[in-house]
Each structure stands twice: as structure tokens, then as C-alpha cells.
């Protein structure tokens, strides 16, 4: 029973997301649009199941609301911080590279971490080492590399590790 359910609906979050996006894209919500979004939500996961070779396993969603608030706050802070750095004199900037050691192997968690790092203050994630143990991060203003690593690890990596084991 469970395997049959899996073969019809491989991933419930993906189907739900496609359904919501299909309804949002419609000009006005009619019965036909809902049926169309439902069909798309059933068909597209069947196709994408063959593409994806490493499934995302979500352990718990409990840290997600807090992480979302932290990230949203940090995005606003990142904008003000970057604007000040860009508008200020360039001589004061000390750009630098940091290899951040990673504690988890889940590729989806690493992807989320890299995106969050790019959207938050003064850092852009550039490359993942081949053994998935280190993430190369470029910082626009880097007075203390160790402080940056500690901030990334405690602020973003710890909650992401709970979501993606």
C-alpha cells in the first residue's frame, strides 16, 4: 500500500508546491485551473523522480520558522551592511577567502547553507570542495576569519543540520 502511494505521489512537498504555484499563476481561480494544477502536481513529480538521484530527507521542520526569521532579518541587515561598504571608501575594505569546514554531508542541506550564506551579510559562497567537506566563502570585509566561521556554524549550520540529517 505504501509503495503504491509512493509510486503515485513520490514527493508530497513538491506536489503541493507545484499545485500552489499553478493556482497562483492563473489569472482567476476557476474549477478548470484547479484541475489543471492538480494534473500538473501529479505528472511533474513523476518526471522529476527520474532526474533526481539523491533524495532529500527531512527529519524535522521544527527549527524552520526560527531559521526563516533569522535569515529574513539577516537579509535586511546584509543590505544595509553592503550598502555602507559600497558607498564608503574602498580602501577600508579587506576582502578575503575562507574555507568553512562542513559537518554534514547532505547535498540539499549544503545547497541551502550556500544559498543562505550568499544572501547574508558580506559573504558569497563560491565553491564546494570535491569531498564535500569544505565550502569556499568570499567575504567583502573580513577583519576576523575565525569569527565568520563561528557565526556561520552556529547561526545557520546548526539549524540546517537538524532539518537535513
Amino acid at each position: 500500500m505504501r509503495t503504491r502511494f509512493r509510486s503515485i505521489l513520490p514527493s508530497i512537498p513538491l506536489s503541493l508546491m507545484i499545485f500552489v504555484f499553478g493556482i497562483l499563476l492563473a489569472d482567476r481561480i476557476t474549477a478548470g485551473q484547479i484541475v489543471l494544477a492538480g494534473i500538473l502536481a501529479l505528472v511533474i513529480p513523476q518526471v522529476s523522480r527520474r532526474l533526481e538521484r539523491e533524495f532529500a530527507r527531512i527529519k524535522s521542520l521544527k527549527p524552520l520558522p526560527r531559521l526563516a526569521c533569522v535569515v529574513l532579518y539577516d537579509i535586511v541587515r546584509a543590505n544595509i551592511h553592503t550598502a555602507r561598504l559600497v558607498l564608503g571608501p574602498e580602501r577600508q575594505l579587506k576582502p578575503g577567502w575562507v574555507w568553512v569546514p562542513l559537518d554534514f554531508k547532505n547535498i540539499h542541506g549544503i545547497t541551502a547553507l550556500a544559498s543562505v550564506i550568499t544572501l547574508t551579510p558580506g559573504t558569497v559562497s563560491a565553491e564546494l570542495s570535491d569531498d564535500r567537506k569544505y565550502l569556499l566563502v568570499h567575504a567583502l570585509d573580513l577583519p576576523d576569519p575565525q569569527a565568520l566561521i563561528d557565526e556561520i556554524k552556529t547561526r545557520y549550520e546548526a539549524p540546517l543540520k537538524e532539518i537535513f540529517p
Partner: peptide, 22 residues
């Protein structure tokens, strides 16, 4: 400000910061 950073800063990796965030 994002586009200004694209023009003003001197190195590619510094320029990358403006457009991605701002």
C-alpha cells in the same frame, strides 16, 4: 546601490556582492 557597487569596486569578487544582495 547594487548597480553602483558593480561599477565602483575594483575587483570581480568584490563586484559580485552588490548585485547578489542589494
Amino acid at each position: 546601490v547594487g548597480s553602483l557597487g558593480l561599477v565602483k569596486l575594483s575587483d570581480f569578487f568584490r563586484r559580485l556582492h552588490g548585485p547578489t544582495k542589494a
